[in-house]
């Protein structure tokens, strides 16, 4: 899997959780931007990402992964997406 593929999959999870099939994901999103990415959506996002990529985030990570960039970085670090 390469970075663009990962980005597509992460974007899919975002659209699903935020219930916005048409949402354009540009890569600079963070909590509050878009506004529907609120604190509850954030936890749903983490749950869905854990399920999609079969990874576990710690409580500490969850509270730090506030932007799409940080989420991408955390996923890249995980072993099961290291073939990028």
């Amino acid at each position: 899997m390469n970075y663009p593929d990962l980005f597509v999959r992460v974007s899919g999870v975002f659209r699903l959780v935020l219930d916005s099939p048409e949402l354009q994901i540009v890569g600079h999103e963070c909590i509050g931007d878009p506004a529907i990415w609120d604190s509850f959506a954030h936890v749903n996002l983490i749950i869905a990402l854990e399920s999609e990529f079969n990874v576990e985030f710690t409580a500490e990570e969850i509270s730090q992964l506030h932007s799409l960039e940080s989420i991408m970085a955390a996923l890249i670090k995980r072993q099961n997406v290291s073939e990028i």
Binding site: L16, V17, D19, N44, I47, A48, S51, E52
Partner: peptide, 13 residues
């Protein structure tokens, strides 16, 4: 039960 919450979320969406 792994993944059941996300499955429900998907069926909702």
């Amino acid at each position: 039960i792994k993944g059941s919450y996300v499955r429900s979320l998907k069926s909702l969406r």
